[in-house]
Amino acid sequence: MNRIVTKEEFSKNPSVKMMQIEAPRIARKAKGGQFVVFRLNETGERVPLTVADTDPEKGLVTIIFQEVGKSTMALGALEVGDCLADFIGPLGQPTHMGDFGTVLCVAGGIGIAPTHNIVKALKANGNKVISIIGARTKDLLFWEDKMRDLSDELYVCTDDGSYGIHGLVTKVEQELLEKNRESGEIGLVIGIGPPIMMKFVCKTSEPFGVQTLVSLPTIMVDATGMCGACRVTVGGETKFVCVDGPEFDGHKVDFDEMLKRQGIYLEQEKVAVERYQHGNDCGCCDECGGDQ
């Protein structure tokens, strides 16, 4: 159960990794936009990750993660054949599917992963998809080929100009929406990536009046609607990302509040990383033999 079947490192600094997990039921059931929760071991925390891809036939679920804290670092340290204590899902609402005409998907960094699964679903539902993928620098880009295969048009950007278009994803988004003013074919924008990027994807699309969905990566515990750790304000109302989301109307999301809430455990996160990187004792040099 929950066995790691493949593992690949996409980039080193920061470390981004891809894993395929053996989870046949989830692989059959998960739809675009949904997420899973993993727990490494008995002392582990519950961490949500959006599904990047599924292979229902082989019973595999693909996750892509950046090593930002102790849990993702420890996950990245596991090897093929290792098992996760828990791999729970699919959770959250799938991306609402309908006839949107053309959908513009804007993905930043690690956000390329969930976007891929959504684009897959959108295409299966007969939509035309234009995708923009971007990252800080060339090394942090991944799945360009997969995204190209799925999308009707693909634009690739890097912040530093090391590959593709030099600039932020929102620059291309702006241009495409300008062009769209006349044709009006883009009926939906989906923006997924770091919170700050999603905020600006929404700011960019707002003047054009095009509906924009974002997928929110909030902190969660049970992820079944029980605790409210993931709450966000959407249109003045409190929503739970785990059961009402993870996708919301980006023009109504209070991103500033969400960004503040994302920082609740920064201090503890530092302690945990320190402890993880320096062995399991006090996190010190161990010269005192534990006396101090």
Binding site: S71, V221, C227, Q268
Partner: peptide, 25 residues
């Protein structure tokens, strides 16, 4: 919410952080 506070502490054993990974304020 009490659910979150107690779940973190009881189920996830946040009172034993950092031995357990789940934090609590």
């Amino acid at each position: 919410s009490a659910n979150e506070y107690l779940t973190r502490s009881n189920l996830m054993k946040a009172y034993l952080f950092p031995e357990y990974d789940t934090p609590i304020v």
